[in-house]
Design a protein around this nucleic acid. Structure first.
Lengths: 193, 193, 193, 193
DNA sequence: AATGAATGAGGTTTCATTCAT
DNA sequence: TATGAATGAAACCTCATTCAT
């Protein structure tokens, strides 16, 4: 019964839950439940609700962690040394690899109920970051002049679809090739001359 | 008791259910339930399962009908009279308008559980059609040479994201402008020179 | 599993549930749960919600049934043969006996969440009936002139408290004696003269 | 960490909790929770259970305090100067006003789980006091001869119902009028003849 | 072919109380 | 004496699907 009443620093316990959730959702995808998470975390159900008001709040947390992890792994160079298009393509390919490694988390975070909860600060941060990139590139004259925000959305959709395609069995090389083609053609500035 | 036991031609009864479902799902979106559909159709719950093995099967059916309706409304000219790029842009804009008019059907058909059920013959028919267009355009030398299938998928994603953006309140003109920019830049053949 | 899928006329099944609920609540009082009722009724949990939108709705139903049963057992004579005070005292004593026999139903129906749901047509029907009696008696000059509605409420409270007292172990004769004293003194008309 | 570990005189700490509970329950009624009380008291959850074995014990304590406050505000004159009936009516009206001012405490103390916990020493103190009054008045020949204890219970029920009626929106004057009528008629001694 | 009553697993959330520190 | 993290038993309600009639 009370065999395992482990008292922990709140931050530590919260982290345990979050990490357990990550493991479980990677495995089970969007069909994971609070029940599954607490079992994996070795905690009681009520403990979950001590740290997250709702299941969706956990998902939002995982999403933010995931984006943060991406930023850490693929930092955007302040001043791109190589040409900007290469930077974008590298980031894009990195994003695809990264999301593919998320396994079930992908489904839970990008599809599902959370998708609609697109608050500016979280889910859209990806879009915002792309928009900033577009703006900077355009200012530097090395990327095409495009309406940053809506274009960023569409680019994100392209990245995301590339992931889904590969996840569904499409040939990786072809999928990435098509993605790079679209990005390159879209972003290459007009041959000014 | 048996007063309302209307015997009907199976096809007719099936159609009744499908059309009732369309009306209801337009109104209620993905939260529509079997219950709602049969009430609207004036049929019994069991009758639903006489015509559809699962709820998802109905959704798949609605999706196919929707794509068929699109084809009827926006037939692809066998031999485009104007330049091909205009045709593509027209179709794309038409698609966006069309999907926006679907109301709740949009959510139910494109998001939700169905998204994964991408059997080649149904959802992908959109993709297949775009791929055919790309292929034809490329053969005619009026569209860029691109890997048709994966590119078609990405183009479809771009269209779809444009719809979602507008549905979420993004300015219509900007959203469509960004879409056209991506399509045009992607599909314009290299200045052969 | 599916051992016991008994198909029943809705009215019959509803009655089964209601009667099962009565038995169970008599036994368990206000702590009875949906679970308990369906177990007793030999039905599935979902079946309960087919007939009652909420647990409280069942309680309201039981309350109405109970009042109806009381009316059947103690019909108010249209034209009281004996003197009116005797009629009132008889009804009052009958009410006390009747409610005492309700066992746990008493607690569930009169105390608990339902108490606040006093819609005119149900719970208050007791009060309304008493008020009518007061009015008729006063008109006939055989009961004191009292403000009918608020007085009826108070009389009902007196009856109810008498039940509670006895249920809590108070001596039955004394409790009923005190009740009759209050009623008699309150309702006896002033010695007009 | 241990910054807020205020060591306090046990009695003082207990009082803090009790007063916090009063404030909170006035505001939230019977839906107040342990959590709310300790937050208001600036204490930890465990501290609550250092002073009260259960939530209900706190409620019982509040009830006793409330009755004590009533006694302070409406002391029963040892030897009533005016006639006894006036005293009773004044007390009764005072009680009604007093309880109405309790706000949420009313619900928590008089209704809810506590109602059944009628230990002689607490809740019934009201009843006991009324009984004493009845006894004294009867001995003095200025109140009717009635069985004191059960009658006191019923009178208390009448007072209480009057409060509930007003709290539920009944016209104050009518409710109090009806109450006084019942009390007066019940307690007026027979015109000895 | 049609009906609609019945099923029951499944999921989220609450909160009094405990106990390791 | 004080803390507050942890517990876990409930409890309600939904709805796709089944199947007796």
């Amino acid at each position: 019964m009370t065999a395992s009443r482990r008292r922990l620093d709140p931050a530590a316990r919260r982290l345990e839950i979050v990490e357990a959730a990550e493991r479980v959702i990677r495995r089970l995808g969007a069909s994971a439940r609070v029940e599954d998470v607490v079992r994996e975390a070795g905690a009681a159900k009520g403990t979950f609700y001590l740290y997250f008001p709702t299941w969706e709040a956990l998902l939002a947390c995982l999403r933010d962690r995931t984006f943060a992890a991406f930023d850490t792994r693929f930092p955007v160079p302040a001043i791109p040394e190589a040409d900007w298009l290469t930077v974008v393509n590298t980031l894009a390919t990195g994003f695809v690899e990264f999301v593919l490694e998320l396994e079930g988390l992908h489904e839970a975070i990008f599809h599902g109920a959370l998708a609609k909860t697109a608050e500016p600060g979280s889910s859209d941060s990806a879009t915002l970051r792309i928009a900033a990139l577009l703006r900077a590139g355009a200012a530097a004259g090395v990327l095409a002049q495009l309406d940053p925000e809506p274009t960023a959305r569409l680019i994100f959709a392209v990245l995301h679809e590339t992931v889904d395609a590969i996840a569904q069995g499409e040939d990786r090389a072809r999928a990435i090739g098509a993605m790079r083609a679209i990005l390159t053609r879209t972003l290459t500035p007009a041959p000014s001359a």
